[in-house]
Amino acid sequence: MQLPVMPPVQPMLAKSTKSIPDPAKFDGGLSFEPKWDGFRCLVFRDGDEVELASRNTKPLTRYFPEMVAAFKEQLPERCVLDGELFVAIGERLQFEVLQERIHPAASRITKLAEETPAGFVAFDLLALGDEDLTRLPFAERRARLEAALGHLVGGSGPTYLTRTTTDAALAQEWLDQFEGAGLDGVIAKPMSAAYQPNARAMLKIKHERTADVVVAGYRLHKTSTPEKPLLGSLLLGLYDGDRLHHVGVAASFTAKRREELLEELRELETDVDDHPWAEWAGQMIANPSRIPGTQSRWSAGKDLSFVPLRPERVLEVGYDHMEGTRFRHTAQFKRWRPDRDPESCGYDQLEEPVNYDLAEVLGAAPAQR
């Protein structure tokens, strides 16, 4: 493989902002596009050679054989693309189904490639033929991308060209609507910016929500020692009827706060046999629901044991969105809620996005101004 941009390449990143930014405050304005909830992926094609690389430059090629075949049919002969791999079932993206593709067994990968095939949405062009395009402003890279992949617009996939707009009001509509199709928010790209690997040169706008959850356990931090124990993460639960479900973790704390939380929670420590999650304790099995104390292919070799706590304390957390019955990402500790009864913390408090058909997102024209 001989391309003007060669792997490894770390993709350009985004920093968070609370609302849709004003394009007038940026030289050349902004281009807005949906934020896809999948695996970031750089695609390198040189004739019959195709390589897929993850955000941290690890190879993804063997896990997505159906996409390798599609790229040979649908992409220019020699190119480097930045985009997102995803799996869609029905009208929504399904991140947990996508995760299942990272599997050591080739037979399993082949089976899943047939049963739940992936797709790829392209949103930047780093090289075409013998040209390195990374130094060009995004406005020019986008125009070149549309010219190179315009034939895919309105097609059946599995390779797509993301839609864009320079209209901030339309971007706000996308932020409100597209979550119903499983998307993750909106990305804003400065039109005049070059491609900057591993730099947070873009902006991302995601939903900010809060929920009151039950603290039902904790795990120790990886740097914890018997002499100086440190809390690593809080295990969070929500009630569905009288059953307490594990919904995620809160984990971002300073070292001082990790010590403080450990002291605050010691009085709630209990024997696992008296805990709502007693039936799961000690299980070390592959578990797509990520039950506390169990292993999965993502955590093989890690100590996932937890310290059970009496489910008596309520915590308000910030989160962006749900994936099934769990928080999609790590929740953010907001404040203790001593005024809340743990049994009142159920799924009914969570905001549900309006359903939106993913096909409407994927089938759009190259750009909407």
Rank of each mutant, 00 (worst) to 15 (best):
213 V>I: 07
294 T>N: 03
345 C>N: 03
291 I>M: 07
75 L>W: 08
366 P>I: 15
36 W>Q: 07
281 A>P: 04
263 E>C: 06
102 I>V: 06
302 K>L: 05
364 A>N: 05
220 L>I: 08
220 L>A: 09
23 P>M: 05
94 Q>S: 13
280 W>I: 13
210 T>M: 00
291 I>F: 05
19 S>I: 11
76 P>A: 11
279 E>M: 11
289 S>Q: 04
109 I>M: 03
33 E>R: 04
276 P>Y: 03
59 P>F: 02
105 A>E: 11
26 F>P: 00
221 H>T: 11
106 A>H: 06
214 V>F: 05
324 G>W: 08
165 T>V: 12
345 C>M: 00
338 P>R: 09
153 V>E: 04
31 S>K: 09
215 V>F: 03
15 K>T: 10
46 D>V: 12
161 L>H: 11
332 Q>R: 06
11 P>V: 02
227 E>I: 15
94 Q>N: 14
176 D>C: 08
65 P>D: 13
170 L>R: 15
129 G>F: 00
281 A>G: 09
247 V>W: 12
49 E>K: 15
262 L>H: 04
163 R>T: 15
201 A>S: 13
115 E>Y: 01
72 K>T: 02
179 E>Y: 15
83 G>K: 05
289 S>E: 05
290 R>C: 06
143 A>P: 05
130 D>K: 12
112 L>N: 08
157 G>I: 15
321 H>P: 01
293 G>S: 14
180 G>Q: 07
190 P>K: 02
152 L>A: 14
341 D>V: 10
189 K>W: 09
219 R>M: 12
326 R>H: 05
360 E>C: 13
155 G>H: 15
257 R>L: 15
20 I>M: 08
177 Q>A: 14
344 S>W: 07
125 L>E: 09
164 T>M: 08
312 E>A: 07
344 S>N: 06
213 V>N: 07
46 D>H: 14
219 R>V: 02
356 Y>H: 14
95 F>R: 01
32 F>L: 09
161 L>T: 11
261 L>N: 09
231 L>V: 10
21 P>H: 04
40 R>G: 06
90 G>T: 01
43 V>F: 02
124 D>W: 02
352 E>Y: 00
187 I>G: 01
125 L>A: 08
186 V>Q: 10
85 L>W: 14
143 A>Q: 14
360 E>D: 10
144 R>N: 11
245 H>D: 15
344 S>R: 12
159 T>D: 07
286 A>F: 06
64 F>H: 14
196 Q>Y: 00
35 K>D: 01
186 V>Y: 10
234 L>T: 08
30 L>E: 09
275 H>P: 08
84 E>T: 09
38 G>F: 14
274 D>Y: 06
30 L>S: 14
177 Q>G: 06
54 S>V: 09
273 D>K: 01
297 R>N: 03
315 L>F: 01
200 R>H: 08
166 T>Q: 10
78 R>D: 00
175 L>Q: 15
99 Q>Y: 00
244 L>H: 01
115 E>C: 03
8 P>R: 08
323 E>V: 14
194 A>M: 09
327 F>A: 02
45 R>V: 07
43 V>D: 02
197 P>C: 07
62 R>N: 11
353 P>I: 03
123 F>T: 08
296 S>K: 05
212 D>T: 01
185 G>S: 04
292 P>W: 01
192 S>I: 10
285 I>L: 04
71 F>R: 13
128 L>M: 07
186 V>N: 10
246 H>P: 04
